[in-house]
Simulated assay, not measured.
Amino acid sequence: MEDLKSAMEEHMEQMADLVQKFSAELRTGLRPAYDNFVGFFHAIDWKEPWLMGLMGFHVVLLLLTIFSRKNVNFQMCLFLLALAGVYFAENFNRLLSENWKSFAGQNYFDPSGVFLSALWSGPLLVIAILILVNTLFSLCYLIVRWKKAELRHRARVARKQD
């Protein structure tokens, strides 16, 4: 019984420490995250042609996603391509880190892939989420249409039986 009691007290102390650390982080606010973002943003030379091309690619893909929102099959192809791009980001990062001198002014491609995750995978995931939300809305609309048709059919059958 004493072992259980000491284990519970130890657990409560650990939880209190975690709560104190978490509250201390909340008190510091978002300033450290903001500082990290600003440092990341300023470390990149945004005038490099390949970066402008990458941003243009994401803008074109986003516009294509928006304008094709009524075509579910095309949207599913875009969805799968976006997710495939995220899936192969690690291989893509390795390839780019080996050949960065041929197209970039500095090596942005660290082994952990932070840069590529932020500028390649992040926008692709946002586009995939937009496609997913659009697909869910389309499915909800189809379910409503189907249920209305079913209710009209039942009403016709009921009128014929009366």
Results as ranks from 00 to 15, higher is better:
126 V>A: 13
41 F>E: 14
111 P>L: 05
85 G>K: 06
79 F>I: 07
59 V>D: 09
105 G>P: 02
140 C>P: 00
144 V>H: 11
126 V>E: 01
32 P>A: 02
58 H>G: 05
100 W>E: 00
106 Q>I: 05
61 L>M: 15
79 F>S: 03
119 L>A: 00
125 L>P: 01
77 C>R: 15
143 I>Y: 13
91 N>C: 07
46 W>V: 01
97 S>H: 00
70 K>G: 02
39 G>C: 12
99 N>G: 04
126 V>Y: 06
78 L>W: 09
72 V>M: 10
133 V>Y: 05
148 K>T: 11
48 E>G: 03
145 R>I: 11
39 G>T: 12
129 I>S: 10
96 L>Y: 02
101 K>G: 08
52 M>S: 04
134 N>G: 10
38 V>I: 15
138 S>R: 04
62 L>Y: 14
111 P>I: 05
61 L>V: 11
83 L>D: 09
124 L>I: 10
81 L>K: 08
30 L>N: 14
112 S>R: 13
133 V>A: 05
96 L>K: 01
111 P>D: 09
62 L>W: 13
101 K>N: 09
77 C>V: 15
31 R>V: 12
59 V>C: 10
29 G>D: 00
102 S>A: 11
140 C>G: 12
32 P>F: 01
87 Y>D: 09
148 K>M: 12
80 L>A: 15
94 R>L: 13
122 G>S: 04
58 H>M: 10
129 I>Q: 07
132 L>Y: 11
117 S>M: 01
64 L>P: 03
58 H>R: 04
141 Y>V: 07
92 F>I: 08
135 T>I: 08
124 L>K: 05
129 I>Y: 10
34 Y>G: 04
32 P>N: 00
81 L>P: 02
52 M>N: 06
89 A>K: 08
121 S>C: 10
